[in-house]
Amino acid sequence: MSAVLEHANVTVADPHGTAAWMQKVFGWHIRWEGAAKNGGYSVHVGETNSYLALYAPPSAAGKAPESYGIIGGLNHLAVIVPDLDATEDAVKAAGFTPINHGDYEPGRRFYFHDENGIEFEAVQYD
């Protein structure tokens, strides 16, 4: 058996707000929520075997620098979707702007930034 990525943990301004759009856009559900490290609060949103931990510190956090220029930067999170066109419509309805569309073997993709500045890639494989 090979290793499987279970979750990623990202800092957001409003875990409930971020989880809400993820539920609408990706069809995910809240798996758990509660008190977290250093007095913060987390909402875990995703599927049965994988999720994103959305962490908010107890006081407002600063913005990270552009990630592609720093070691350890989170450049983007990719999500496989069953219908890229429907996902793009949902992304737009959530108030985000799809960018950098591309077709490649074996699929299609686009990117968007959420309200926290996190870049997401939506990809559909043929």
Rank of each mutant, 00 (worst) to 15 (best):
Leu5Ile: 15
Leu5Val: 15
Glu6His: 13
Ala8Met: 13
Asn9Phe: 09
Thr11Val: 15
Thr11Ser: 12
Asp14Gly: 07
Asp14Cys: 04
Asp14Thr: 06
Pro15Gly: 00
His16Ile: 04
Gly17His: 00
Thr18Met: 02
Ala20Arg: 05
Met22Val: 03
Met22Pro: 00
Gln23Ile: 15
Val25Lys: 00
Val25Gln: 04
Phe26Thr: 08
Phe26Trp: 13
Gly27Cys: 04
Ile30His: 03
Ile30Trp: 01
Ile30Gly: 06
Ile30Lys: 09
Arg31Asp: 11
Trp32Glu: 03
Trp32Arg: 15
Glu33Ile: 00
Glu33Leu: 02
Glu33Met: 03
Ala35Lys: 03
Ala36Arg: 03
Ala36Phe: 11
Lys37Leu: 14
Asn38Arg: 01
Gly39Trp: 05
Tyr41Arg: 06
Tyr41Pro: 01
His44Asp: 14
Gly46Arg: 10
Gly46Cys: 11
Gly46His: 07
Glu47Ile: 13
Glu47Met: 14
Tyr51Gly: 02
Leu52Asn: 09
Ala53Tyr: 08
Tyr55Arg: 11
Ala56Asp: 02
Ala56Pro: 03
Ala56Gln: 14
Pro57Trp: 08
Pro57Val: 02
Pro57His: 08
Pro58His: 04
Ser59Pro: 03
Ser59Gly: 07
Ser59Gln: 12
Ser59Lys: 11
Ser59Phe: 08
Ala60His: 02
Ala60Asn: 00
Gly62Lys: 07
Gly62Ala: 05
Lys63Met: 12
Ala64Pro: 12
Pro65Asp: 10
Ser67Val: 04
Tyr68Gly: 09
Gly69Leu: 14
Ile71Trp: 12
Ile71Gln: 14
Gly72Asp: 10
Gly72Phe: 14
Gly72Ala: 12
Gly73Cys: 12
Asn75Glu: 14
His76Ala: 01
Leu77Ala: 10
Val79Pro: 05
Val79Trp: 08
Val81Tyr: 03
Val81Cys: 00
Val81Gly: 00
Pro82Leu: 12
Pro82Gly: 09
Pro82Val: 10
Leu84Asn: 14
Asp85Phe: 11
Ala86Trp: 07
Thr87Gly: 06
Glu88Thr: 06
Glu88Gln: 13
Glu88Ile: 03
Ala90Asn: 12
Val91Arg: 01
Ala93Val: 04
Ala94Gly: 00
Ala94His: 00
Ala94Met: 01
Ala94Val: 01
Phe96Gln: 02
Thr97Gln: 06
Ile99Pro: 03
Ile99Arg: 06
Asn100Lys: 05
Asn100His: 04
Gly102Leu: 06
Gly102Asp: 05
Gly102Ile: 01
Tyr104Pro: 08
Glu105Arg: 13
Pro106Ser: 12
Gly107Phe: 05
Gly107Trp: 03
Arg108Cys: 10
Arg108Ile: 07
Arg109Thr: 12
Phe110Ser: 01
Phe110Ala: 07
Phe110Asp: 02
His113Met: 02
Asp114Met: 01
Glu115Gln: 14
Glu115Phe: 09
Asn116Asp: 09
Asn116Arg: 00
Asn116Met: 02
Ile118Gly: 09
Ile118Val: 12
Glu119Met: 13
Phe120His: 09
Phe120Asn: 03
Glu121Trp: 02
Ala122Ile: 06
Ala122Leu: 14
Gln124Asp: 10
Tyr125Thr: 12
Tyr125Cys: 10
Tyr125Lys: 13
